[in-house]
Computed example of a mutant assay.
Amino acid sequence: MPVPDLFDEHSRFLLAAIVESSFDAIVSKDLNSVIRSWNAAAERMFGYPAEEAIGKSVTMLIPENLQSEEVDIINRIKSGERVESFETVRLRRDGSTINVSLTISPIRNAQGTIIGASKIARDITQAKEAERRIRLLLREVNHRVKNQFAVILSIIRETSDRAAGPEEFQAQLRDRIMALSRSHDLLVNSDWSGASLLELIHHHVGVFGHEQLVTISGPLVTLNSNAVQHLGMAIHELGTNSAKYGVLAQGLGAISIDWKIGEDEDGNRILDLVWREELLETVAARLESPSRRGFGSVVVERVVPLALSGKATLERQPKRVIWSLRARLDALTQPD
């Protein structure tokens, strides 16, 4: 009377438990591509209960345009090859697709004859989605870096044309690049979703000191990245002028930066932003002499309003500087 091989029986039980508890779909099929076993993970992944899947062709899981994969897999299995992991697409019961990584190995009987194949399928949908997001992010970063380079090259050119000498050029260029960097920091901290107008103004005005002379007020407005960068440039140029010739240089007078939201004659929502600088004593409060239009004037009067599809005015008097910007709110706030 034969003695039962208890070790083999325990091994089979252990293997079956491992297969059934696996998070990966494990399916066996014969050489005619007919499914012979189907674990719980396969049911979760593909939506078919075991009683519906077993006895059916595995091709029911393969999209029409990928049916040739099964022919190639069976031919390789028959020759004794193990099909190394490869990424492909499979079908669920509801007709939706799923990205999977497949590893396929031959199954042999006790005599060593190949009688089928085992397939291990791992759901890589999340990994593929992460790859897609990374590719989108890289394209977005590439786009933004190119835009930044264009802005920086423009700053270099305009600063060089208007600087009195190499030292002034270096100092002005450094300050303007640092201003861009401050706006960039705000955008990075928000994952490029934008920044509030209040935060942007504080960020740029604070570097000049004399915060007690500056009042900032207005409703909450979250700017898109384009508005952050261009309004940041304008606030920097106005602050730089004030630190040279105005309130922030004299420590006398006051600066108010206010904005409000209204509507134009066509019913479009409008942002009105005003920088108002008032000195208590007569000093040369000016961006530049009227006979010399510097880069700061170009930025606040032309570059920024053009970039924001708005209009700006700059009023310069011996004891007063007023810069006003009017732009459609959607141009400042809608994602760019």
Results as ranks from 00 to 15, higher is better:
residue 3 V to I: 11
residue 8 D to H: 13
residue 12 R to Q: 15
residue 12 R to C: 15
residue 15 L to A: 02
residue 15 L to Q: 03
residue 25 A to C: 10
residue 29 K to R: 05
residue 30 D to I: 07
residue 31 L to Y: 05
residue 35 I to H: 05
residue 37 S to H: 14
residue 37 S to M: 10
residue 38 W to G: 00
residue 40 A to D: 05
residue 44 R to Y: 08
residue 45 M to G: 08
residue 50 A to N: 10
residue 51 E to R: 13
residue 53 A to P: 13
residue 54 I to C: 09
residue 60 M to A: 01
residue 62 I to M: 11
residue 65 N to V: 15
residue 66 L to H: 09
residue 71 V to K: 12
residue 75 N to K: 09
residue 80 G to W: 05
residue 80 G to N: 11
residue 81 E to R: 05
residue 83 V to I: 13
residue 85 S to N: 11
residue 91 L to W: 10
residue 94 D to V: 00
residue 98 I to S: 03
residue 100 V to N: 01
residue 101 S to N: 15
residue 102 L to G: 02
residue 104 I to N: 07
residue 105 S to V: 07
residue 106 P to F: 02
residue 114 I to C: 03
residue 118 S to L: 00
residue 124 I to M: 12
residue 125 T to H: 13
residue 125 T to N: 13
residue 134 I to A: 07
residue 135 R to L: 13
residue 141 V to K: 10
residue 142 N to C: 15
residue 142 N to H: 14
residue 142 N to E: 15
residue 142 N to K: 15
residue 144 R to N: 07
residue 152 I to E: 05
residue 153 L to K: 12
residue 158 E to F: 11
residue 159 T to N: 01
residue 160 S to W: 05
residue 161 D to C: 14
residue 162 R to C: 10
residue 163 A to R: 07
residue 163 A to N: 06
residue 169 F to K: 09
residue 170 Q to Y: 08
residue 171 A to T: 15
residue 176 R to A: 11
residue 176 R to P: 03
residue 177 I to W: 01
residue 178 M to E: 02
residue 178 M to K: 03
residue 182 R to N: 10
residue 185 D to Q: 15
residue 189 N to D: 11
residue 189 N to I: 10
residue 191 D to F: 06
residue 192 W to Q: 12
residue 195 A to F: 13
residue 196 S to H: 09
residue 198 L to N: 12
residue 199 E to T: 04
residue 203 H to N: 14
residue 204 H to W: 05
residue 205 V to P: 00
residue 206 G to I: 05
residue 209 G to S: 11
residue 211 E to K: 13
residue 212 Q to F: 12
residue 214 V to R: 01
residue 217 S to F: 08
residue 220 L to H: 04
residue 221 V to Y: 10
residue 230 H to E: 12
residue 237 E to N: 05
residue 247 V to N: 01
residue 248 L to C: 03
residue 249 A to P: 00
residue 254 A to H: 03
residue 257 I to H: 04
residue 257 I to P: 02
residue 257 I to E: 04
residue 261 I to V: 11
residue 261 I to W: 02
residue 264 D to Q: 00
residue 267 G to M: 03
residue 273 L to A: 02
residue 273 L to S: 02
residue 274 V to H: 00
residue 275 W to Y: 11
residue 277 E to C: 02
residue 277 E to D: 01
residue 278 E to L: 06
residue 278 E to V: 04
residue 278 E to T: 07
residue 282 T to N: 06
residue 282 T to P: 09
residue 286 R to A: 01
residue 288 E to I: 04
residue 290 P to W: 12
residue 295 F to G: 14
residue 300 V to C: 02
residue 306 L to S: 12
residue 306 L to V: 11
residue 307 A to T: 08
residue 310 G to T: 06
residue 311 K to F: 04
residue 319 K to N: 04
residue 320 R to E: 02
residue 323 W to N: 08
residue 325 L to C: 00
residue 325 L to A: 00
residue 328 R to G: 11
residue 330 D to L: 01
residue 332 L to T: 10
residue 333 T to W: 03
residue 334 Q to T: 03
